[in-house]
Design a protein around this nucleic acid. Structure first.
Lengths: 172, 172
DNA sequence: GATATTTGATATGGTCCATAACAATTATCA
DNA sequence: TGATAATTGTTATGGACCATATCAAATATC
């Protein structure tokens, strides 16, 4: 027995214990989702993966992930904030935000500055290059990514969807 | 210098290089999301996390994750299928599905059987206990989880949302 | 019957997420 | 004031999830 309790470590029946023969499904048709199709969380997850994939494609020339883009957007909209404030707003834990900022700072998209008030905190500021990249990214996102979403869903459904998702994220 | 190239390993400016003082934001009000609120992918991700959290809470007595629940549902709806067929339908890669099945099988919720046709493949079947647990899980999900979603979104918006999410997952 | 393909499995590495702990700094308050 | 507590950025670490290469056994192909 191992000590750590990963799923992979759980006991698996020996080969000898599963020797019974069973008839496989006859037809090779597509599997039925059943009630899975009615599970909101399931479709939510699958849709989210697709949307993030498309985001990455649309903004690939700038090499920005959705999370990185959200950081740049937040820095632009909220100057003079420190690491914890930015991280908290995005639901990122402070320890995990360090490496994220390191990556952005090493590409000269943002910069850590010392606060004039509190020598503990680092104020995070967009660099000139950061502002330029963000501006280009915004255009890619609006013209390619969101445009495609609006096209597929229809403008009114897109707006409604945004509203409902925000409601879920807020009060669920 | 380390060898692997994680984001955390990217060069970070030395402490000496960021000594400039900067005025922090004066007010301590809530940070502005800005265009982040209009990004569908952002709200999609946040909503998905909340919904999965709620799912885990609602089905906690049965100790089932959303992924495990989806496997049980699929096994029930599609008897006589092998591991790859189940995994593919759920978008799970075969190597990663092995540990997942190990966990379920070690709890006697399902069982791997040899196919009568093809001695390579394992037909995955629900056990009696698996069927019982699935039945209970379905009730928890319907009466607690989905019920709350419908309550928050409203029945017609819930249905519309499901439709749109499925559309995104399908044709995006 | 030689070769290619499929299936389940292992190994491995990457990314993301969560917690504990630490030094430096600041806040609290007796 | 000075002792103690709290905060900030950081490191270390481990778990969960995802992706690729590879393998032996079995089957398919030609």
């Amino acid at each position: 027995m191992t000590v750590s309790k990963t799923a992979a470590d759980t006991a698996r029946p020996s080969r000898a214990s599963r020797k019974d023969l069973v008839e496989p499904a006859a037809d090779d048709s597509v599997l039925q989702l059943g009630e899975l199709a009615g599970l909101l969380g399931y479709s939510l997850k699958r849709a989210q993966l697709k949307v993030f994939e498309d985001f990455l494609r649309c903004v690939a020339p700038l090499q920005l992930t959705p999370a990185q883009f959200s950081v740049l957007l937040l820095l632009d909209k909220n100057p003079g904030r420190n690491q914890t404030e930015i991280a908290n707003t995005l639901g990122i834990l402070r320890p995990n935000f360090v490496a994220m900022l390191d990556a952005l700072e090493s590409r000269d998209l943002c910069s850590r500055m010392r606060s004039a008030n509190d020598r503990r905190s680092h104020i995070v500021v967009l660099t000139e290059k950061g502002r330029a990249v963000l501006a280009r990214a915004k255009k890619f996102v609006a013209n390619k990514h969101e445009a495609r979403l609006i096209e597929v869903l229809g403008p009114e459904h897109h707006a409604l969807m945004l509203e409902m998702l925000a409601k879920l994220a807020r009060e669920f």
